[in-house]
Amino acid sequence: MEKVILDVDTGIDDALAILYAVESGALDILGITAVNGNVPLQNVTKNTLKVLQLAGRQDIKVYPGASEPYLKEAQHVFHIHGKDGIGNALDDMTVEGTEENLFAADFIIESVNKYPGEVTIILVGPLTNLALALKKAPEIAGLIKRIVVMGGAVDCPGNITPAAEFNIHADAEAAKVVFHKGLDITLVGLDVTSQTMMDLSDIETLAGTKYYDFIKQSTDVYRKYGEELYGRNSCALHDPLTVGYVLDESLITTREVYTDVEITGELSYGQTIADFSNRLGQQPNMKVSLEVDSGRFVKHFIDTLGNQKS
């Protein structure tokens, strides 16, 4: 099984991505690192512990990381993810697990040194933890197998500003650090994630299974936000698709291209710019996602979680 670290800002779709990764049975999850993002770090950590408890996987350790971005002030999106970050779907759960004392960036450094060339890092929140790890131990860039990032919008509008996607915009300086360290990067952006919509009919197929109640309740506020945007009661599976790519790369068509992040523009801060026409004359530094087999992915996601009986 592929060794992975999940870096999350849990978040409704982060929670779904964690469950998807756990229930796929195809990933050796070394640990989960938490980062400030959708909600503050303390919410992220608590939500992650709750989701793992729901899955019965308290053996997977949670490592708290950056409580604020690399340089800028924190921003959160409670209006999308609810007051706690997971739609208050697990309010009645008493958390049994505890977070680890090791800082997330140090856990990343420790893990890739322990398994050189073997660890894939799946980042579905701002890239602060990895940027800090690379700052502290730049030599790990040559030890990481690959990173797969939910972030960016290279050929479509943003979702936090007209130009920028939330995860990159939340810490564009950290993203810029990561993008220029010579890593094997795949960017799974809004160009493809916005095509992977889960609606109420998909959720109803999970009735009677382990995660039905949680998915229906947690995504309620998320689907209502989707209804405002798209005119249908549905939500995009941004973070689960990023896990899905690690499970099956054939789901997404990518192109190698030089891509950078804007960090100075007043209107364009956080924009991911892919130089498709090679105007800058730079060598490609990542693969960007352009097309997705959305139907096949959504079916696999639903089937994977639906296989768990209540």
Rank of each mutant, 00 (worst) to 15 (best):
D184A: 10
A133I: 05
M286D: 01
I60A: 07
G31C: 07
I215Q: 01
Y115T: 12
G82L: 09
G152M: 04
E99W: 00
T186P: 05
V22W: 01
G306D: 06
D248W: 00
E139N: 08
L251H: 06
E266Y: 15
A131G: 07
Y212S: 07
G82R: 05
F78L: 12
H238N: 14
K210R: 14
G85T: 02
S201M: 11
E204D: 09
Q283W: 04
G142N: 07
T45Y: 04
G306V: 02
T98H: 09
Y230Q: 08
L206F: 03
D202N: 14
G65Y: 05
L200S: 12
D184C: 06
V188A: 04
S310R: 07
E96P: 00
Y269W: 03
L16C: 15
A175E: 01
N43T: 10
G182Q: 11
L102I: 14
T264F: 13
N36Q: 15
L27W: 03
L237E: 05
K299G: 00
P240L: 11
D303E: 13
L130T: 02
L290D: 00
E99G: 04
S310W: 08
D239F: 08
V178C: 11
I121P: 04
C235A: 13
G226Q: 06
Q282M: 12
A164Q: 07
S294H: 12
V261F: 03
Q271W: 03
N285G: 04
L49A: 06
P240N: 15
K3N: 07
I147C: 09
E139Y: 08
L305G: 03
Y70I: 03
D293T: 05
P240K: 15
L102K: 07
T272E: 06
G306R: 06
G37S: 07
T120S: 13
E99M: 08
C156Y: 05
A66V: 00
H169N: 15
D59M: 12
F103W: 10
T48G: 09
T253K: 13
E23L: 04
L280F: 13
C235R: 04
E227V: 06
G208W: 10
F78E: 13
T120Q: 02
T94R: 12
L90T: 01
K114H: 13
G65T: 11
H81Y: 08
I122S: 03
V35I: 04
G208P: 02
D191R: 10
I18E: 03
S268A: 13
T205S: 15
D239V: 09
V177F: 01
A175F: 13
S24T: 05
G25N: 10
V178M: 06
